[in-house]
Design a protein around this nucleic acid. Sequence first.
DNA 1: CGTTACCTTGAATCTCCTCAATACACGTGG
DNA 2: CCACGTGTATTGAGGAGATTCAAGGTAACG
Lengths: 256, 256
Amino acid sequence: MQKKHQQDARAKGRIKLSCAKCRLRANDAFREFERDELDFIETFKVGELAIDAGATILMDGQDSPHLYTVLSGWAVRFKLFEGGQRQVLNFSMPGDLIGLQSAMFDKMHHTVESLTDMQLCVFNRDRVWELYRLHPGLGFDMTWLAAREESIMAEYLANVGQRPALERIAYLILHLLERGRRAGLAKGNTLMTPITQEHVADAIGLSIVHTNKTLQRLRATGLMTWKRGEITIHDAERMAGIAGFQASGAGRRPFI
Amino acid sequence: MQKKHQQDARAKGRIKLSCAKCRLRANDAFREFERDELDFIETFKVGELAIDAGATILMDGQDSPHLYTVLSGWAVRFKLFEGGQRQVLNFSMPGDLIGLQSAMFDKMHHTVESLTDMQLCVFNRDRVWELYRLHPGLGFDMTWLAAREESIMAEYLANVGQRPALERIAYLILHLLERGRRAGLAKGNTLMTPITQEHVADAIGLSIVHTNKTLQRLRATGLMTWKRGEITIHDAERMAGIAGFQASGAGRRPFI
DNA sequence: CGTTACCTTGAATCTCCTCAATACACGTGG
DNA sequence: CCACGTGTATTGAGGAGATTCAAGGTAACG
């Protein structure tokens, strides 16, 4: 009974848990915070938000008062065109920041939608300035995160702009496995993911049909399998060979 | 004689001019700095660097001790593939920051090359942390610049991933005119630029041949002309129509 | 006046797209 | 337990768009 009540409260985003016990801190892919940074984040944090799969978290053009960090679950960031076409920019995983653009430019330049049920940590945009003033280290982290996103966007652009279908898909999948691994979403060489072939198609700029056929070609090599939300790379090295992929050896990263 | 000597010194990057008189400050597309910020930048700045067209400013994989702001001239940022293919990520214009990645990740994830003779303002990477600590406003600016680059990369990705050739080129050109205008490189609807069709091809992910043919189609509409480094848009509205372009109404921007 | 860099052209080929079905998996209600 | 609906994955065929190869043309510069 007690527990049930708590569940409800979380669904409405009322619970505020201690940052010191944040589940993300258990993952050593992230950097440690200083004591005073942790204290500040504690006050910076407005609460937690639990949302269902398929919800729109932030919408293109919208000015949001909030900034989020993903605690659990997957989201997809994309741009929509008049013709109904969609460019998937990236997928958001635990530790990723959502809504930086609205904090910087007063409006989003793309839409963010949940792919699974998610838990988000909610911050108040108004206090971002305070963060820079009082905790330069966290301000630096924000820049780091933004620069990293830029770097990923550039890689995706190069991938879509220059590589043929097979390489393109191989690259995306390796990249997702790599990121998923750091976020604790992979078991060995298997990535647990909610993404569909349509998401892949929209991410690499190919039609669904062609994506499907290319994916079959890729599976036919025996280097990977993909079923029921589980993507497994059997030979990462040879896979990286056709993808022209090199894991970016970034060390421990901040997550705010 | 006196003057000639000064020229030589600048070519070797020895001159250090006052930031208060920085030519960029004359452009009101950029935000004003506070007095103390200006003083800090003055000390942060190592010197000025004058380089020739065609020089490599930063190389992919390289760890640079410096960070630059473009004072004048054009550069191109790109990724190179084994096969010799090249993805142009963006063009750098006055006010743009170069080398943020090496400051954040200890290595560049792309190459930067000058397209014209350039003047760069040189900063020391070691002191970036000091910048965050002493001048949170400038730290915020860094994040702003990084987020803006991310936003541009995302737009380019969507452009390359989803649009057909004609729209793709139209979009790129409008985007360049818009940016060039803010950087003071345009006269009315004419952009003065050193970029070639090959650059355009590498930026939008099409072959030179097809880029050429598509460009001719675009010029045939009468909406634009391009000769001798001058691109003129005659009907920006209709051009924006085929490009699906909407100018991002960002206000005054920082430039560090 | 020759060199170089850039732009233009035509033809053959192939990648990728659209259209239009069909198949499969999973959950729901009868 | 089966029938049905929905979302996702798969197939085949024909056509548009982009690529490559291979020449040629033009403007700028020394």
